[in-house]
Design a protein around this nucleic acid. Sequence first.
DNA 1: CTGAAAGCGCTTACAG
DNA 2: CTGAAAGCGCTTACAG
Lengths: 340, 340
Amino acid sequence: MAQTKVTSAEVAARAGVSQSAVSRVFTPGASASAKTVEKVKAAAAELGYRPNVLARAMVSGKSRIIGLAVAYLDNYFYPAALELLSNALKKQGYHILIFTAPNSVDAVDNLVQELMDYQVDGIIAASVSMSSTLADRARLAGIPIVLFNRGLEGSGMSAVTSANIEGGRKVAEFLVAGGHSRIAHISGWSGSSTGHDRAIGFNAGLNAAGQTAVAQIDGMYSRDVASEAARDLMKAQTPPDAIFVGNDHMAFAVMDTLRFELGVSVPNDVSVIGYDDVPMAAWASYDLTTVRQPVNKMVDATIETLLGQINDPNRMPQKTEIPGPLITRSSARCPQGWTP
Amino acid sequence: MAQTKVTSAEVAARAGVSQSAVSRVFTPGASASAKTVEKVKAAAAELGYRPNVLARAMVSGKSRIIGLAVAYLDNYFYPAALELLSNALKKQGYHILIFTAPNSVDAVDNLVQELMDYQVDGIIAASVSMSSTLADRARLAGIPIVLFNRGLEGSGMSAVTSANIEGGRKVAEFLVAGGHSRIAHISGWSGSSTGHDRAIGFNAGLNAAGQTAVAQIDGMYSRDVASEAARDLMKAQTPPDAIFVGNDHMAFAVMDTLRFELGVSVPNDVSVIGYDDVPMAAWASYDLTTVRQPVNKMVDATIETLLGQINDPNRMPQKTEIPGPLITRSSARCPQGWTP
DNA sequence: CTGAAAGCGCTTACAG
DNA sequence: CTGAAAGCGCTTACAG
């Protein structure tokens, strides 16, 4: 049968000290004499004692757990971010309680509630939207939230994104400089700030050059929807000579559809540009030109913001926008003498 | 300032009942009169009360947290499994505390210790190895562990894998039937049961047909190592006409290296077969012939085993092996008139 | 059904 | 430095 877990009281008994003494030995920053430390450590080692994190959390009010809500795990950008987040947080003594979410506001609200039930010290909401009602409730409960790769207009919530508007504009400029004249956009979900902002910047860039997108279709962050959009686009009387796709994940689907289903050459017939620069974008089969989201910097900023607010509840929410370069590869025609 | 969280005592005061009554209303299966339920629910709603899961965990001894240790998140098989695991567990009222791990036994042992500090009710170790010492300690502490996509010889630990030996053999038979005569293997890490077993089955299959692998190189589950292995293989005087790669993740790298770096045609010059059938294997750029690991069935079995042991501590550890079909696509030459 | 009380395993003032 | 005691927010026998 399962032997019961060993407690600080048992260690105390064995070491011949009080239970508080044991606690002190395991509490960083608490004071205990060298002799006590020695006796307690010895007894703890013999018994295999380890402090119960949950009990500690109850009294200290700090669980050392960060809640993570994430959708779109099929887009490799998120598993990559998750891994970085987990490693960085662990270094700070925090761990991640993960909730995968369908991306509806209701579902996310629910899930954030559950996260709060676990007394998480803070919440990272990656690629999901939530109601400002809930955001308010979290603030009241004193639980900081930071949005990762998503903003929430006018919510006063902390958020970390890349410079999406600027990124979209760069793509437009690159495509125009490359001599494309019939440029289309299969966007990220327009209900997301990310998808929306990239489109805004892209269209602004086009306009600045006297062009307008020949078409814009919402790809909903779905490979299938994006593929279908590509088919529709190529059906037109004058099909596009370039397509900017709202993220790499969809861009791969678009490239495959173009090349293998429609027999369209990329980039000879159509240039394709994505967004994110996930590792796969560098794989030879795709070699995708794309705007890099500096995921490591985004993760650093997220953690800095979140822990900052955990440690200082009066700290104001902060929005961070990290610019990323356009990475030129072979999926899009390069302007003459282009230097990035 | 952060308003303090509301407790059951405050709800009790407002509802005019005892604190125990409040607890009962929120404890499934506890009894309370309709009137009490009504008063308590009303008060709770007004105050925005939700039970503190950690406090509940302390007294009940059940945290409703499952620890997940996972490595190789860059192999999409794992994010996919994570998502399924998370969703299925949530349905059962459990949540996942996730630890990403480098794959060394020491690191994993450490991390499992930390997991236990959080009083997790059970542990899923995906794609990682741990010492049997630690396994014993977990058993003593009464915390069930199940290995996911990894076995541990003679450890008496629960494990869920696909039928790797059989899968490896199927690949050999398919390749032989396809008329290949110089067959090589870039294996998964030979230190992992998964990599080892697939190689065993593969070689056995080859031997049964009177063949021997012309070469076998450990790909270490790394794209770079696998690519390098492919280069070495093709340098030989008589290069292979088929390569079985230990998982899809490496197989993609091998295909790219073959096609774009070495100018080798797949499957005309060399057939390539992978293992896992991650979604990407079906993407047109790769269209990879591979052995499917039925990830959903593996997840179901994992949860069934884990929750079974949580609910009945006397239940014996159990090893589950789930067979998966060979999925034939265009990366490997098909035998004449092949019917799967 | 319901309330008072004990207790889960800790941390942290409070005295000494 | 150290021990006795209170308390974190709950659940659960125990009486009534």
